[in-house]
Structures are given as structure tokens and as C-alpha cells.
């Protein structure tokens, strides 16, 4: 005991002693000395309290019959009624299935492509071609979702669209892409890759740039080919970033792309384009079934959180980088 204390005291500026040792008045003094920092933090804090925590508090309406006159707190409790109604509704299977389909397909296709692109771009010899490729590939990220969906509608139009003109030129029959349920998922995923792969690539390029060039030099001396170096140096080098981004992607699995799905919806493709969140939008804001749709939204959030926790645990078990 007496051994350790002098050692600690001896360290310069070893002020942060365990909190409980600090007397109440000293703590008050510290807090009051930092008042200007709290003032700086205040707007952000007020923001999350009002726009994040108040809605979270309001989630209780999922278990109530929300009535605008009574507000979040005073509306009568109804337990799990809304959840049961959703699970038993005929849309449940379809909406959940559509959501998972898009999410999983998006993850399988759209997640690896930026990694592959980054590995390829990183191997380019010419700095100028590298820069050029990077700029071109990520430019679509600056186009709005509305415009991207607008482009889909004109380019895929059955009468005048570019794609159908090409199909007809090759002797095929024009396809009504935006009006068919089978085409919704492919178009959704391909356009996602088209718009976002280049931008996601940048993070991986940054991670690749941080790899020690000496590793590559040593491997070259040993006669490793480019492919071997990618496999044994580049990939392991960016693995922590890949894992973290994968977990984050899982965490957002059921949230992403809601706006695009909503924009891409037509009455004809609804059977594959209606996902949980568009359903919440239709039932909640267009039909004013607030409690019912809040319950569905909560179902979505909880499912999402469960997926995130699950994969974070898996990553930790596998000794990979984790979020916390």
C-alpha cells in the first residue's frame, strides 16, 4: 500500500485520482470552472434531448393507443396489441421478407465491391490515373437520391429508355423495369453500387495507404506476385477497418436505403418494394395510425440492435476489431 502511493504522487501532473476520492466541494469547483465548456456543449445536448431522446421517450406509444389530445404520457396502455396485429397482418411476412432480402443482397453485393475496387486502384502504377479513377468513381455519391431514381426512370423507361433501346437493338422485347416486382431488387442493388461504391472505396484506400511499404518491398524481394501481396499484406492490413465497417453496416442493415426504396416504389412493384420502413411511412404518416406504425418502427429498431450486438460479439470472439 505505502509502496504504490508515492510512486503515483511522483508522476508529474498525476491529478486524475479515482473520482470517489475527490471531495464534493472540489468536484463542484471543477464543474463550475468548466462552465464555458458546458455552454459550448449545450446546443448539441439540447438537440439530442429534443430530437433523439424525446422521440425515444415517445416510443411508449407503441404500447398505447396514442391520442393527440393526451400526448405520449397520458394515452391509455394497450400492451402488445399493435405488435400482435402487425405480426398477424397479411403484410407481415412480405414486408419483413422484402426488408431482409434487400438488406442481405445489399450487404453481399455492395459491401465487398468497394474493397475490391480499393485493392485494384491501390495497385495502379500511375498516380494520375489513380486520382482520376478515384474522382470519377466517387462522383455519383454527390448526386441526390431523387436524381438517381429519376435517372433510373428515364434510362429504364420502356418507351424511350436507353436500356430498352439497347435491348430492342439486340432483338429483345422491351422490359418495364420500374413496373415489375422481379426487377426491383436488382435495380436497387446495382444502383446502390453505382452510386456509393466509389465513395466507400476511399476509406479503404486511406487504410491501404497506411500499410508500411517496407512489407511490400520485403515481399517483392522474396518474389511475391501482386496477387500474393494483396492476399497476404493488403487484405490483413485493412481487416480491422473492414470489420468495423461491416459491423456498422450490420447496425444500419435495416435502416439504409429507405428513401430510395420509397422513391422507387410504383403501384406495380409494391409486392417486392414495400419494406418495413416504407410500410411505417404509409401506415403512420399517410393513414395516421401512429401507435400501430410506431410499434412496427420499434420492431425494426430492436431487430437492428439485436443484429448489431450479435455481430459485434461474433467479431470479438474471433478476435477482430470491435466497436467497443
Amino acid at each position: 500500500m505505502s509502496r504504490t502511493i508515492p510512486a503515483r504522487r511522483g508522476r508529474p501532473s498525476a491529478a486524475p485520482l479515482p473520482q470517489r476520492r475527490i471531495s464534493f466541494s472540489l468536484r463542484l469547483k471543477r464543474i463550475s470552472r468548466a462552465w464555458q465548456l458546458y455552454v459550448l456543449l449545450a446546443p448539441a445536448l439540447v438537440y439530442i434531448l429534443v430530437f433523439k431522446y424525446w422521440p425515444m421517450y415517445g416510443v411508449q406509444i407503441a404500447f398505447k393507443n396514442y391520442n393527440p389530445a393526451e400526448g405520449f404520457t397520458d394515452s391509455p396502455w394497450v400492451g402488445l396489441t399493435h405488435f400482435i396485429r402487425f405480426v398477424n397482418s397479411y403484410q407481415f411476412g412480405q414486408v419483413l421478407g422484402n426488408t431482409l432480402w434487400i438488406a442481405v443482397l445489399g450487404l453481399l453485393v455492395a459491401f465487398p465491391i468497394p474493397i475490391i475496387l480499393a485493392l485494384l486502384v491501390n495497385q495502379l502504377q500511375s498516380e494520375r490515373f489513380k486520382k482520376f479513377t478515384q474522382t470519377v468513381l466517387y462522383s455519383p455519391a454527390f448526386i441526390s437520391t431523387v436524381v438517381v431514381v429519376g435517372i433510373m426512370f428515364v434510362v429504364l423507361s420502356p418507351r424511350s429508355g436507353l436500356v430498352n433501346n439497347a435491348i430492342q437493338l439486340a432483338g429483345g422485347e422491351p422490359i418495364f423495369f420500374m413496373g415489375s416486382a422481379e426487377w426491383f431488387r436488382p435495380i436497387y442493388v446495382i444502383s446502390d453500387v453505382w452510386q456509393n461504391a466509389g465513395f466507400s472505396m476511399i476509406v479503404y484506400l486511406a487504410a491501404l495507404a497506411a500499410i508500411d511499404p517496407a512489407l511490400h518491398d520485403a515481399a517483392k524481394v522474396d518474389g511475391a506476385s501482386k496477387l500474393q501481396r494483396i492476399r497476404h499484406i493488403d487484405l490483413p492490413g485493412i481487416m480491422p477497418v473492414v470489420t468495423i465497417l461491416f459491423i456498422l453496416a450490420i447496425g444500419n442493415l435495416l435502416n439504409v436505403g429507405f428513401e430510395k426504396a420509397l422513391l422507387m416504389q410504383t403501384p406495380l412493384n409494391l409486392s417486392s418494394s414495400e419494406i418495413i420502413q416504407t410500410y411505417v411511412y404509409h401506415a403512420g404518416l399517410q393513414q395516421a395510425q401512429f401507435s400501430y406504425s410506431a410499434a412496427i418502427g420499434l420492431f425494426n429498431s430492436v431487430l437492428n440492435l439485436a443484429l448489431l450486438l450479435f455481430f459485434n460479439t461474433v467479431a470479438r470472439r474471433a478476435n477482430q476489431a470491435t466497436l467497443w
Binding site: 448539441a44 425515444m56 416510443v59 406509444i61 405520449f72 411505417v280 403512420g284 404518416l285 401512429f290 425494426n300
Partner: peptide
């Protein structure tokens, strides 16, 4: 702040707020 990254109240309650 970090909590709000992983859980949110959803569209409907945001609208009501």
C-alpha cells in the same frame, strides 16, 4: 450521444415531436 447512433425513436415519434 453514442447511444443515439444505435437506437432511435423512429419516424413516427420524431414526426409527433
Amino acid at each position: 450521444f453514442v447511444i443515439t447512433m444505435f437506437f432511435d425513436g423512429g419516424l413516427i415519434t420524431k414526426y409527433l415531436v
